[in-house]
Design a protein around this nucleic acid. Structure first.
Length: 938
RNA sequence: GCCUCGGUGGCGGAAUUGGUAGACGCGCUGGAUUCAAAAUCCAGUUCCGGCAACGGAGUGUGGGUUCGAUUCCCACCCGAGGUACCA
């Protein structure tokens, strides 16, 4: 007898879709377009685990749903295939990263194919493919050739800037630029040497070289961007990170800070994610105030959000790294200052954070002059002031800032109380409602009013002005790595020059070793063919470098986020060799309509890609300033780790229930060696690792019970579950539906297959409705009113749920329908046929198969989505709860056509209601039609 | 510390312009089928009391608004994520 044979159904239809290119998206269509995108994966050696497909399944359901709704759907997939693990594997084994990457991609593809995604694989892209990174390099060059004009609020070609320089110098130019840009006239500009001009232009470019303090990770041998450093250690591997000054390529993302911040308001993104980006950008509004240095004509500027507290300043603090510190330090203090600076420089990020509780610092011996009172104010240095934020110097107001307060207490600096009726003997008063005193013209004002007044006064006297500051910093774009995009850059006399666009892609050269060179240069320093012949415009052997005609090329590569910052646009036109993507294609697809991915990319990929999109928008390459207006975060699927407990210093393992009697170390064991009742397979365990071969056990009831804990899924925790086994055992449709049934997409949830039976049963029941004794048997009879009601209710609810991305409740609706129809033993074609279409996004393999059995010769994928008929949703009567003071006491079936008055009359005449009201006074009757009747009694 | 989100049965989770709390699934209990088991089907399943009808309690805790609160307001407790000397 034939049964629901999911394995052969899966294979049959996966083959069919591939052969017929069912999901190929065209760039022309009469249908409206819809673009559904998943964050593409990094193809790691471990393969897909059950967490990866969660988002892919959700987006696939929605993509398939949209096809049924008559949309031309773009649903692509690709690989973020440059990255660290492949390179580290190469260092260990000598295997070229391209080879392992290729293998991993093959495995990923096989696994994805088994789940039945409706991707258009003809559009697959890989960031490590020269045909792709050609355009990543191209975008880099465009950034290199543009500057950010704050007057027009967008990026403009450098030629335009040069024009301005030639006519009026840079005096009136408002640009995002380096802080140390000198001021010059048109005349001076014309007299600059070409090198000087280059150097100056460099200060304006959107990508530029700069010696900056970077996060240097010695263990990884590379620099890291701020978002790659978590709690003072590297995100990958958890290695210590130190500050180091290095010349690096930078991305001037700060130019876009305001737009990146403002445009968040128009995005339909999860609120926490938007909040993370807002905090990361960290806008603060305040004032810049100029302080003169006592006994010198030098001055310096501080940034403050509380200019109203200027009268409370009792000392100044500078970051120890600030150049100005050396200039102002008095001979007497020189040694102490130097010692402190050295200490501060040596600290790792982590140490600095750990030491944050106690304020440290040194007096420079110098004094500043208070701009309003003329008082002498001592200047200190301390690492609680950061060189990278604001001007790296602050005015300290111990009465109004807790950090300044602690510093003052630590070093016995006077604290001047500038707040009325406030006790500051214990801590500073940071309340903005506090009213000022001892503050001259600001007396009796709260901060809100005083800030504006102070700024007005500062501007009038020319000693300060309103200013906005951002926490966001320019992004480091260089990595000392091999497996990334090379820069199309060479160096002549220490100045960087671009390699012309027509020579792209600049292909990654072969190297013998993937480690840095012996003299500490990045891995590309090992390349034999890595020099630029300027005359012949081609890459030649490094041995030919003469710095006359042949020059060294850039040895750094681009970071992981380069390729992922624009891939969504490439999918629109993935095989274009003339442009990154054609105008016509982007005009058609415009932007991503639905983007699915994890929130861990909030301040990395999701911020950088918005930045590049805005740049591409400015240079008129894309029609939208935001590439993804709707974004959903899928939650992580966590693993359920298993532990055995080894008695300290022995090779003896004690079962969970008895472990408290011993001193033990918990050890992760592979979850595949543990059964569903948490009992360990001892034979497998002994064979697992050689040092366990002789293991002894202390059992309870003859068995070994493991401990369980929910953790992130990872190879090292031995808690990874692969989707392949589930697909083999239950079929792809069961995996798809089960992952969705687990709970809301956004929630993190531990993986357990306890409930998978329920979903699998549903699919088998559904199959059974079309078959009798295993033989296809569907009736052409007209459905009854009752059957139609079930159908139309289901259509309505499922569609509502899909539109809310509430796939777990949509699946519940299917189960309810099947239970109800099962009771009626329905096998009518007119009921089952629309239900198959409805189910198709969730269980596409089964749906295709039943669709074929129903006599169709085309894929179900483009079948119109059934619509519901209101008439079948109306109830003729409803069971009303009858409540007494809000508590349910009785039920009555009443016609839905009755008016409020009729309902009230009918309820009050009911015998049971009469008996309930006995001995009580009825004060009020509340009737909510279709919902409840509430009797208010006393 | 600050920001954001959340707290509902044995478990995953439903339900909010305030209106029958616990849909659906898992698990569990009983029954049918079977020599038996698995599978399947039927019934029950928030907790307490009761054979039952029924009664009482109940959405983290305490208060408030309301005829009526999981939903709104106030205070607090707990958990998750983010962030941390950003002046």
């Amino acid at each position: 007898m034939k049964t629901y044979d999911f394995n052969s159904i899966d294979r049959k239809w996966q083959k069919y879709w591939a052969e017929n290119k069912t999901f190929k998206a065209e760039n022309h269509s009469d249908k409206p377009k819809y673009y559904v995108l998943d964050m593409f994966p990094y193809p790691s050696g471990a393969g897909l685990h059950v967490g990866h497909p969660l988002g892919y399944i959700a987006s696939d359901i929605y993509a398939r749903y949209k096809r049924h709704k008559g949309f031309n759907v773009l649903h692509p997939m690709g690989y973020d295939s440059f990255g660290l693990p492949a390179e580290q594997y190469a260092i260990l084994t000598g295997q070229h990263p391209a080879v392992t990457t290729e293998q991993n991609i093959k495995r990923y593809r096989e696994q994805m194919d088994k789940i039945g995604f409706s991707f258009d694989w003809d559009r697959e892209i890989r960031t490590s493919d020269p045909k792709y990174y050609k355009w990543t390099q191209w975008i880099f060059l465009q950034l290199y050739k543009h500057w950010y004009n704050q007057e027009t609020g967008k990026a403009e070609p450098l030629e335009k800037l040069i024009e301005i320089f030639e006519t009026e110098g840079n005096k009136n130019v408002k640009a995002a630029q380096a802080q140390d840009t000198p001021e010059f006239t048109a005349e001076e500009w014309k007299n600059f040497s070409p090198e000087e001009k280059d150097r100056i232009l460099h200060k304006y470019r959107l990508t530029y070289l700069d010696e900056t303090e970077v996060n240097w990770c010695p263990a990884l041998g590379t620099v890291l961007a701020n978002d790659e450093v978590v709690n003072g250690v590297s995100e990958r591997g958890g290695h210590p990170v130190v500050k180091k000054k290095m010349v690096q390529w930078m991305m001037r993302i700060t130019a876009y800070a305001e737009r990146l911040l403002n445009d968040l308001d128009n995005l339909d993104w999860p609120e926490p994610l938007k909040e993370m980006q807002r905090n990361w950008i960290g806008k603060s509004v305040g004032a810049a105030v100029k302080f003169k240095i006592d006994g010198s004509d030098k001055d310096f500027t501080v940034f403050t959000t509380r200019p109203d507290t200027l009268y409370g300043v009792t000392f100044m603090v500078m970051a120890p790294e600030l150049d100005l510190v050396d200039e102002i330090t008095t001979p007497g203090q020189r040694e102490a200052v130097k010692k402190y600076q050295e200490q501060a420089a040596k600290k790792t990020e982590r140490e600095r954070m750990a030491d944050a509780k106690v304020k440290t610092g040194v007096f420079t011996g110098a004094y500043a002059i208070h701009p309003l009172t003329g008082e002498k104010i001592p200047i200190w240095i301390s690492d609680y002031v950061l060189s990278g934020y604001g001007t790296g110097a602050i005015m300290a107001v111990p009465a109004g800032d807790q950090r300044d307060y602690e510093f003052a207490k630590q070093f016995d600096i006077p604290i001047k109380n500038i707040f009325k009726n406030t006790d500051i003997s214990e801590k500073a008063n940071e309340d903005k409602e506090a009213v000022l005193t001892n503050s001259d013209f600001l007396n009796d004002l709260p901060a809100k009013e005083a800030i504006g007044k102070m700024i007005e006064e500062l501007e009038k006297r020319g000693i300060g002005k309103a200013e906005v500051n951002y926490r966001l910093r320019d992004a480091v774009f260089s990595r000392q790595r091999y497996w990334g995009e090379p820069f199309p850059i060479y160096y002549k006399n220490g100045v960087a020059y671009p390699i012309d666009e027509k020579h792209l892609p600049v292909k990654l050269p072969e190297v013998e070793k993937y480690l840095p060179t012996e003299d500490g240069r990045p891995p590309l320093g090992n390349a034999k063919e890595w020099a630029w012949d300027e005359k012949n415009e081609k890459i030649v052997s490094t041995g030919l470098i003469d710095n006359e005609t042949v020059f060294p090329m850039e040895l750094n590569t681009m970071p992981g986020w380069a390729g992922s910052s624009w891939y969504f646009n490439r999918y629109m036109d993935p095989h274009n060799d003339e442009e990154p993507f054609g105008k016509e294609a982007v005009e058609y697809w415009k932007k991503v309509d639905l983007y699915l991915g994890g929130s861990e990319h909030a301040t990395g990929h999701l911020l950088y890609s918005r930045f590049w999109q805005k740049f591409l928008y400015d240079i008129d390459r894309v029609p939208e300033p935001e590439y993804s207006v709707k974004l959903i975060n899928q939650g992580m699927i966590l693993g359920t780790s298993a532990f055995v407990y080894r008695i300290k210093g022995t090779n003896k393992f004690v079962s969970l229930g008895l472990k408290d009697q011993y001193e033990t170390d918990p050890i992760h064991v592979d979850v595949n060696m543990v059964d569903e009742y948490d009992y360990l397979d001892l034979d497998k365990f002994k064979k697992w690792r050689p040092d366990f071969a002789e293991a002894e056990f202390i059992l309870e009831d003859g068995k070994y019970k493991v401990g369980r804990e929910v953790e992130k899924m990872s190879k090292s925790k031995y808690n990874v579950m692969n989707p392949d086994d589930i697909v083999e055992r239950y079929g792809a449709d069961t995996l798809r539906m089960y992952e969705m049934f687990l709970g809301p997409i956004e929630d993190a949830k531990p993986w357990n297959i306890a409930g998978i039976k329920g979903v699998h049963n549903f699919l088998r029941k559904f199959w059974s409705m079309f078959h009798q004794d295993g033989v296809f048997n569907v009736s052409l009879e007209e459905p009854t009113e009752q059957e139609l009601k079930i159908l139309h209710k289901t259509i309505k609810k499922v569609e509502e749920d899909i539109n809310k991305f509430s796939f777990n409740t949509a699946i519940s609706q299917f189960m309810i329908a099947i239970n109800e129809l099962g009771k009626l033993k329905t096998n009518k074609q007119k009921i089952l046929s629309p239900l198959v279409v409805l189910l198709s996004p969730f269980a596409p393999h089964l749906a295709e198969d039943l669709w074929e059995e129903l006599g169709h010769d085309k894929s179900i994928a483009f079948e119109p989505y059934p619509s519901y008929d209101e008439r079948y949703l109306k109830e003729s009567s409803k069971t009303y709860p009858i409540m007494l003071n809000g508590k349910m006491r009785h039920k009555l079936d009443l016609s839905t056509s009755m008016s409020k008055e009729e309902i009230e009359e009918r309820v009050l005449s009911d015998e049971k209601v009469k008996s309930l009201l006995e001995g009580k006074t009825l004060k009020k009757v509340i009737v909510v039609p279709g919902k409840i009747v509430n009797l208010v009694v006393s």
